[in-house]
Design a protein around this nucleic acid. Structure first.
Length: 497
RNA sequence: GCGGCUGUGGUCUAGACUGGUUAGGACCCAAGCUUCCCAAGCUUGUAGCCCGGGUUCAAAUCCCGGCAGCCGCACCA
């Protein structure tokens, strides 16, 4: 079993990621990406955009603000629902959620209660601390959102957004017109979100500032979703690992066997799965969809599946993304609170569009690539998808003399515009291979004495450490084929024999 | 946020109980030598006691406070 600390140590040492503000002791829940982490992040984002925006011509990127006005988060329900009323034991300082304590005692839902209701209820029920029996203090607000003050007096407040989604919803009307009222309309965004987690832990898993990639798809059920029927039929026999809410195990089923969920939703479910298997190259044994129970899912989500990855470093299955049918809840809320119409005209009259949301925690997804890719058996190497890996190619001279370094610089310069590539000469050839194995460099190009004779170089494959020899003039094309094309390294080897 | 444990170069660690030479080692990294393909060798070098305060002639070591990490609890609409 792989150790989280060992992987994190590699990440720090080689430039993937580490704690923010390290030189000041750091702060829980904040991480920065170094030069390799940043490249991994950028290429992941690019692949995500290519894949999900490619699903339909009417899916587009937008970028919205990190700071949301107070009223937006009121309308979204976050001011009420994203904050909990906590009560503290005066003797042992333990915190508890007030509504949970009351629910346990009465069996009735207490989520609606304000601070005053709760105070009375606790008095009536004569509740005391479950840990030590001590008396409770006054109920206090604990909001997971960061408040920011706006303007010179600071009396106006806003919030750092706890999800990127709201920024998209409040731009719905503008984009609907700008995109000439085509539906379904997909608005994707990539950006930061902020949650004041009580106890951020597990490396990048519970960060206070984190990255999200989300695609919000707006449609009127029964009308616009019909347009995806044909697309769905093309993938309805796709098999996915899935665990329904009332199943006690994960099963591999065909999409069309899931007959109680609309095809429009299943289409995106299938495509998400495909992103994990085909783009992120995770093994299907390590991924699954899990349907959340009514207790777990938010009240406005009619259907909610999470994609979970089976992590080695984090004790098993953990959520990395979700597919939520949020119904018309969000637009309805914003319509009511802003007093602006967010409905669209259909043959059946005015309707408020519904939303299907594809939501990805980027940091978690990157960690899943590192977690599943890190191999530490007879040698240490990082098995990353060749299109996503931060360093695709490394070039070095076999030895540091007789003009080989100079020749290798030439080859390096030839590759720079086409690949994420590095050049190095320090240490021995074996050490350079090992260094590059550790950070997931897909191919190492070595310039040797034969190169000076016949303009050929060797390409070494990270997966097998085997080599092929190719001519420099074909090098760029062959590497492109290996990285982006269908041709595999072993095809080239057979060709050589 | 509570409780337990922990914090020594980039990484892993010795030293702490019993305060006392210049904080030792390994790996990594860098420069050079060597080297015709998988962490070889040699030379040199960079770099550290989490932060602050206290006790003491003297603190990495003892005490107090803070910060951070790990584990457990709680929390995670």
């Amino acid at each position: 079993m792989m150790d989280k600390e060992e992987l994190l140590s590699m990440c720090k040492r080689r430039g993937f990621l580490w704690r923010s503000a390290e030189i000041y002791g750091g702060e829980a829940g904040f991480y920065d990406y170094g030069h390799l982490g940043a490249k991994l992040l950028d290429s992941w984002k690019q692949k995500w955009k290519d894949f999900f925006l490619g699903l339909d011509e009417n899916y587009h990127m937008i970028y919205t603000n990190n700071i949301m006005p107070h009223r937006v988060m009121e309308a979204s329900g976050h001011v009420d629902h994203f904050s909990d009323i906590m009560i503290r034991c005066e003797r042992c300082d333990s915190y508890f959620r007030g509504d949970h304590l009351i629910e346990q005692e009465t069996g009735e839902n207490a989520e609606w209660m304000g601070k005053e209701d709760m105070k009375e209820s606790i008095k009536e029920l004569e509740l005391s601390c479950p840990d030590c029996g001590g008396d409770f203090s006054e109920p206090e607000d604990f909001n997971m959102m960061f408040t920011v003050s706006l303007g010179p007096t600071g009396q106006k407040t806003g919030f750092l957004r706890p999800e990127t989604a709201q920024g998209t919803y409040i731009n719905f009307r503008r984009e609907y017109r700008a995109l000439r009222k085509q539906m379904p309309m997909g608005l994707a965004t990539i950006g930061s979100a902020f949650r004041n987690e009580i106890s951020p832990r597990q490396v990048v898993f519970r960060k206070r500032e984190f990255l999200q990639a989300e695609l919000q798809i707006f449609f009127v059920p029964g009308i616009h979703d019909e347009k995806f029927k044909k697309k769905y039929q093309e993938i309805e026999e796709m098999k996915v690992n899935i665990r329904r809410e009332d199943w006690d195990e994960t099963r591999e089923v065909m999409l069309k066997e899931i007959d109680d969920i609309q095809p429009f939703y299943l289409y995106h479910l299938g495509k998400m799965y495909e992103f994990y298997t085909d783009i992120m190259k995770l093994s299907s044994k390590d991924i699954r969809f899990r349907e959340l129970s009514d207790d777990e899912k938010a009240f406005y989500n009619k259907i909610h599946f999470d994609i979970e990855v089976n992590f080695d470093t984090l004790n098993g299955w953990k959520e990395v993304s979700g597919l939520h049918y949020r119904s018309d809840y969000d637009l309805r809320q914003h319509q009511e609170n802003s007093n602006q119409s967010l409905s669209v005209s259909t043959d059946d009259g005015k309707k408020i569009p519904h939303v299907i949301e594809l939501s990805f925690g980027i940091d978690r997804n990157l960690w899943s690539l590192l977690d599943k890719g890190y191999k530490d058996d007879d040698r240490t190497w990082l098995d990353l998808p060749k299109e996503i890996t931060p360093r695709q190619v490394a070039v070095f001279p076999l030895v540091r003399k007789d003009g080989l370094p100079e020749k290798s610089r030439e080859v390096f310069d030839k590759l720079r515009s086409d690949f994420r590539v590095t050049w190095e000469k320090s240490g021995s050839i074996g050490k350079r291979y090992a260094r590059n194995d550790e950070v997931g460099t897909s191919y190492c190009i070595t310039i040797d004495y034969d190169t000076l004779e016949d303009e050929s170089v060797t390409i070494r494959d990270i997966e097998t450490t085997e080599q092929i020899r190719v001519e420099i003039k074909e090098l760029n094309d062959i590497l492109k084929e290996l990285i982006y094309g269908r041709k595999k390294f072993k095809d080239h080897m057979e060709q050589e024999d």
